[in-house]
């Protein structure tokens, strides 16, 4: 297995190089930092400063190599759009904020999606199955920004009209150290529900489909014929195999959650990676954009590797030679 992990890690290196070069090039050509001065009345010195800051006098491949050389040494450069703070520190700080949402959201999503998917498959065409299917389609079709804003209106405005209190905060992050446990929880609820609905909806559909395939397979029928209890058949033999396709989706979803949910963070004014990435893009801050992109790419690679390793745990037939 060790050799497999090493091989996988090594194969990701060219992948990351190609990915970062593409992102670097696209970001570099997507906007001209000098254009922001165009509408202003400025001396050449102002242009020279920006040219110097972004190495705009060098061709893109050369700029990429300079960036890469620094990045592999742990120096991702300062972020001009964030007061010159070090990109690495910024990304790390914001990643922790995003993790405050992503980790609890992920576990709630995983538990709910599996439960709903399995129940829906086992009780196929029941009222509950129709309900779960309806819920899933609602979650898939409802844009995140609509659902997030709707939650703000319901719990921030209407709830106060109905009950004279506001159970949750509609914007901003709160920490235990600064605001106490209660406020911390109240600030987390709405963004987590927003993430939960959108992702659970799609994951529960995957789980349902996988479970349906499994419970109609021969070995399940055999298990039942042998007289095993229904619960054992479903949870021990069925669920374990039905989880395999979901593990891949979990790996991607978790990496993306940790990489920042741009829309959710924007609506709830959550200072996470998603908003940082947006700031980098809108303000044409190449260092910042690259820092966040590399972080997300690394997460995707790592969690895909973890997913591959989990296959072996879930399915003993899978071996890593």
């Amino acid at each position: 297995m060790f050799a497999y992990v090493v091989r996988r890690v090594l194969t990701t290196i060219p992948l990351l190089l190609i990915g970062t070069f593409l992102v670097f090039t696209l970001t570099a050509i997507s906007g001209d930092p000098l254009a922001r001065l165009a509408q202003l009345d400025v001396d050449q010195a102002a242009y020279d400063r920006l040219i110097d800051l972004y190495n705009l006098d060098q061709p893109i491949p050369q700029r990429y190599v300079s960036w890469l050389t620094s990045a592999v040494q742990g120096d991702m450069g300062p972020s001009p759009s964030q007061g010159g703070q070090q990109t690495f520190d910024l990304v790390l700080g914001r990643a922790l904020n995003t993790a405050r949402l992503a980790i609890p959201a992920f576990f709630i999503i995983a538990i709910t999606a599996v439960t709903l998917g399995v129940y829906s498959a086992v009780k196929q065409y029941s009222k509950l199955d129709y309900f779960v299917t309806g819920f899933s389609f609602l979650g898939i079709s409802l844009p995140t920004f609509v659902f997030g804003l709707l939650l703000q209106v319901i719990f921030g405005i209407w709830w106060f009209d109905w009950f004279g209190a506001r159970p949750f905060f509609v914007q901003g992050m709160r920490t235990v150290a600064q605001h106490g446990w209660l406020d911390m929880v109240r600030a987390h609820v709405l963004p987590i529900i927003t993430l939960w609905l959108v992702i659970t909806a799609s994951e529960s559909r995957f789980q349902r489909a996988a479970m349906l395939e499994v419970i109609n397979s021969d070995y399940i029928r055999t298990a039942r014929a042998k007289g095993l209890p229904r619960r054992t058949v479903i949870l021990k033999h069925g669920l374990r195999n039905a989880l395999i396709p979901l593990v891949t989706i979990w790996a991607i979803d978790f990496a993306l959650l940790l990489g920042g949910a741009v829309v959710t963070e924007t609506i709830f004014a959550w200072p996470g990676l998603g908003r940082l990435l947006l700031a980098g893009i809108f303000q044409q801050d190449l260092n910042l954009t690259m820092g966040v992109v590399v972080f997300i790419a690394a997460l995707v690679v790592v969690f895909n590797l973890i997913a591959d390793l989990l296959y072996g745990v879930l399915d003993p037939r899978i071996r890593y030679d």
């Binding site: 804003l149 905060f169 914007q171 901003g172 709830f268 004014a269 947006l278």
Partner: peptide, 19 residues
């Protein structure tokens, strides 16, 4: 000054008493 990027979310914050 709270930085709330979304305009609708700003309005919600005002209506919800958080701004």
């Amino acid at each position: 000054i709270n930085f709330v990027a979304d305009t609708d979310a700003q309005i919600n914050a005002l209506l919800a008493g958080e701004a």
